[in-house]
Design a protein around this nucleic acid. Structure first.
Length: 591
RNA sequence: GCGCCCUUAGCUCAGCAGGAUAGAGCAGCCGCCUUCUAAGCGGCAGGUCGGCAGUUCGAAUCUGCCAGGGCGCACCA
């Protein structure tokens, strides 16, 4: 149990005790009060609003309620002091011992420190990236990849049963376009002069080696056949090649998925037909005409009869087409089948990470999920806004391979995966993000990933030095978890410990809000606390971590440093960045 | 025209299941290197939390309206 929960329990017991003894009356249910670190340091270690919430139902002034609870809290051995403040806050000071023991707990627990059970093992499917298999990933995909990957890790840490999934859109018209584009490159490799790439096909150079490989493998066998004959083969080969490209992009970014789910397998397996049959059985589809869009009317607008889903019955603005006017399935139709498939695999909660340009699609799919799961399935969508690439403040375009967009790989080659990942998390995902390539490589306070990794490296550095100075001492986490920490009493040291004790709270809050960026901000805060403590040693040598003539104090401080390293590592692991042992020899701009 | 998101210090942004005097970094000013990494740290100054109402003991946080900005809006994915 975390410290916060322990104290929460202590307060709850005090309330119930007061109720039992008739000191308090409570007409309603127990209000859900909070125990949190107060903003002001002077307000003690922990504050609760319980008295103010009880005041309503207990028909007493908040401060009067607090007065009743105060003596009961004072009696608790963890509590060093209780103050009633402001409109009725109860501020608690805990014995330093409580905080010191938190250090030992961190060292015993290791990087699983921070884990929570609020997820209660609930199965959740997080779908992210799902970039079309038509080319390499671009930076926009990269943001979704990081947000999804870290969200999954976050939910896992918070006790959810997480499946990380990638949906391969390998059944739509765009993979036929891909196949034709590859066929062209195949002919090119066989010596045909293909001229300029026709409008409507993918022009990217990345298809050249795919065509070449096919030419080497297959010879001229397909060259003079009809499209109907070669298309399926080229489509399959091209998709495989593109997915290999994408998987490599993901690998370089340290992004993982448990499941790669093929849209085609769903269509071929009758999943979409089954959805249609189900919706028909519920009278939720009909052949109809769509209203023209309000506002600006497209030039080529014409009414077309289509198979429509009654999305309006489930909260959407208009009914939505399941089939195109040519009779083929819309992407929407197979997406319904896909989400039903997830639901049937046991994922009552589904989180999709999409680009913000898909914002208009959210309601539609949510309404469909509601319909097709009888309200039992819940789809949530995290939208990721655009990234503005800058170089020293100026808009930046670099396009070595792809022509029109900046590939994710180019970006990673430029600044490194750790930097890309962390910077992607320095804004909440639904706000646009400026990514400055120059700042990303600066080794200053301005660059958040550097600042955090620097803190970790400094911890390592101290422990390395200590190991040299005291070769006879064991400085393992296990050994340090046993040392006496009585001497960790300075305000700064306790403040750092309190920061670390917050880790679980941050994990829980971030998981509930589904906001992975909060992890990055927490790491920056924690790094700041550590750097602050470190620099105390600049002013006063007695405050350095290693004090040669005081072994007990040194041991205790090394335990503190080691615990800090554990929490930093735990957070860096979650955001998927390397906890660097030292920074000097491994500058990301090298290599 | 409709929907979703955004608006907090000069700049870039945190904070939001309501809580005490609204935070951080940068930029500005003032200090700190015979040092376990000064690639850093401390301090000062800087605000009607876009506006107006409402709910509440209490609002940056919740609700409504307004203004400014972004994204999207038949059959594509």
């Amino acid at each position: 149990m975390t410290l916060f929960k322990t104290i929460h329990k202590v307060i709850e017991t005090a309330v119930q005790d007061s109720l039992a003894k008739g000191a308090l009356d409570l007409s309603g249910p127990m209000p859900s009060f909070v125990v949190e670190p107060p903003r002001e340091r002077a307000h003690g270690d922990l504050a609760t609003n319980v008295a103010m919430l009880l005041a309503k139902t207990a028909h007493k002034a908040p401060r009067a309620v607090a007065e009743i609870l105060k003596p009961k809290l004072e009696g608790n051995p963890l509590v060093a002091g209780v103050e009633i403040a402001g409109p009725g806050f109860i501020n608690l000071r805990l014995h330093p011992k409580v905080w010191q023991e938190e250090v030992s707990a961190i060292l015993r627990t290791g990087t699983s420190y921070g884990e929570s059970d609020i997820g209660k093992g609930i199965k959740v499917n997080v779908e992210y990236v799902s970039a079309n298999p038509t080319g390499p990933m671009h930076v926009g995909h990269g943001r979704g990849a990081v947000v999804g990957d870290v969200l999954a890790a976050l939910l896992e840490k918070a006790g959810y049963g997480v499946c990380r999934e990638y949906y391969i859109n390998d059944a739509g018209a765009q993979v036929d376009v891909l196949a034709r584009s590859v066929f062209l490159r195949y002919r090119e490799a066989l010596g045909d002069n293909i001229g300029a790439i026709p409008e409507g096909l993918y022009p990217g150079d990345y298809l050249v080696p795919v065509g070449k490989a096919l030419a080497e493998c297959e010879g001229a066998a397909w060259k003079d056949k009809d499209e109907a004959e070669w298309l399926p083969f080229f489509r399959k080969e091209a998709i495989e090649a593109m997915m290999a490209l994408i998987r490599e992009d993901l690998r370089v970014m340290n992004v993982h998925h448990d499941v790669f789910f093929s849209e085609r397998s769903l269509v071929d397996g009758g999943g979409v037909d089954a959805v249609r049959a189900f919706l028909e059985s519920r009278d939720l589809v009909y052949e109809g005409l769509l209203e023209p869009p309000k506002g600006k009317l497209p030039d080529d607008w014409e009414p077309r009869p289509q198979l429509l889903f009654r999305a309006t019955q489930f909260g959407d603005d208009v009914d939505r087409p399941l089939k195109k006017s040519d009779g083929s399935w819309t992407y929407f139709a197979s997406d319904i089948a896909y989400h039903l498939n997830k639901f049937k695999r046991g994922f009552g909660l589904m989180i999709d990470v999409w680009g913000a340009d898909h914002g208009g699609y959210v309601k539609r799919l949510q309404s469909a999920v509601k319909a097709v799961t009888d309200g039992a399935g819940r789809l949530e969508v995290r939208l990721c806004q655009m990234i503005n690439l800058l170089k020293d403040g100026q808009p930046y375009k670099m396009s070595k391979r792809a022509g029109t967009f900046v590939t994710l790989r180019d970006l990673v080659d430029e600044v490194g995966a750790d930097v890309v990942r962390f910077i992607m998390l320095t804004r909440k995902s639904d706000a646009p993000l400026d990514f400055d390539l120059v700042k990303a490589l600066e080794q200053t306070r301005d660059n958040p990933i550097f600042y955090v990794q620097y803190a970790h490296a400094r911890c390592c550095s101290v422990l390395r030095h200590a190991a040299e100075m005291f070769p006879e001492e064991s400085l393992s986490e296990e050994a340090l978890s046993e040392v006496s920490l009585d001497c960790l009493t300075s305000e700064e040291e306790l403040f750092l410990i309190k920061g670390m004790a917050n880790w679980t709270r941050v994990v829980e809050a971030a998981a509930l809000a589904q906001e992975p960026h909060r992890i990055a901000f927490y790491l920056m805060d924690l790094a700041g606390l550590f750097h602050g403590l470190w620099n105390k040693g600049n002013d006063n040598a007695a405050l350095r971590f290693i004090v040669p003539d005081d072994k007990n104090l040194t041991r205790a401080r090394l335990a503190l440093i080691s615990a800090t390293r554990v929490v930093l590592r735990s957070g860096l692991n979650m955001v998927g960045c390397t906890p660097m042992e030292e920074l000097r020899s491994e500058s990301p701009s090298e290599g």
